[in-house]
Design a protein around this nucleic acid. Structure first.
Ligand SMILES: [Mn+2]
Ligand SMILES: [Mn+2]
Ligand SMILES: [Zn+2]
Ligand SMILES: [Zn+2]
Lengths: 138, 138
DNA sequence: ATCCTAGCTTAGACTCTGTCTAAACAAAGA
DNA sequence: TCTTTGTTTAGACAGAGTCTAAGCTAGGAT
């Protein structure tokens, strides 16, 4: 796993100061930020950074396949720099806490041929939901 | 599997003409409509039906656990009347076609204990993605 | 060095999806 | 009937994200 800026450079993609700050903000976090949270944090390092550039840059990184876009709840999308780690997500129904998780095998294997409707099935993502330790008391 | 209106009545929930039209539109479809598509189709039967009632009613049916809300792509949410059928979804990257699918077992079983981070994991949903037969030619 | 061009960034207007508000309306119970 | 509660409605509003038009780089050609 190389860092996100290195992976982006491999695509012959110009690493401008704005793009670098956005990529480093996203990577440094280990959580799954919204575009607005990334804007807020990146602006701490580069105050003149615009909202449009954050959205443009995130969309381009997604198109390059180096960032995952998670639309989990119909509210803000979340951005995940771990596109090179196959993983899934576990979310707390109480507080929204989100954890990366790994399953024992590829879920596509568990979809029988007669359930594929003639599709070529390329990938899958699982969202597990439950209660985190802090929310189980309530 | 009883029909949606019957299931809703079991909750002592008042079945008004508006709610009936919305429930029947949702159930009749076999696809996964957006709120706007439901409004459009339900208005064909009851022209004075309002947007607010469609949104209110869908949210109440979701809260009663009789309809599933799917936030799959960060655009409009989709509503699924098959809440009493445990199932997952297979989506075409080309055209957006969505099919119900069934896996061989409960995915929660496939999440090892040391990947649960102390959560009580209650349910899961899988989104499979690929290309449908029509989109494989391109 | 200067010019040119293509690509990048910006502010703000705009769109789309969904929620909220306040008033009108309908139904059930006393 | 009167009252009370729940339902529906139109339109205002809010949040998330896109688009536009203008200005601004940065590199390549001369
Ligand atoms: Mn993740
Ligand atoms: Mn379904
Ligand atoms: Zn929690
Ligand atoms: Zn297709």
């Amino acid at each position: 796993m190389s860092d996100l800026v290195t992976r982006l450079r491999r695509h012959n993609w110009r690493i401008t100061p704005q793009r670098r700050v956005i990529a480093e903000t996203l990577e440094g976090s280990h959580v799954h930020f919204t575009a607005e949270q990334i804007l807020e944090r990146a602006c701490a390092r580069m105050p003149e950074l615009s909202r449009a550039t954050v959205y443009n840059t995130l969309n381009e990184m997604v198109a390059l396949g180096e960032v995952l876009e998670l639309a989990l709840d119909g509210r803000s999308k979340r951005y995940d720099p771990n596109a090179d780690h196959e993983h899934h997500h576990l979310i707390c129904d109480g507080c929204g806490l989100m954890k990366d998780v790994h399953t024992v095998a590829d879920p596509v294997e568990w979809l029988p041929g007669d359930e594929r409707h003639g599709f070529t099935v390329a990938r899958s993502s699982i969202t597990f939901r439950g209660l985190c330790p802090d929310c189980q008391g309530a």
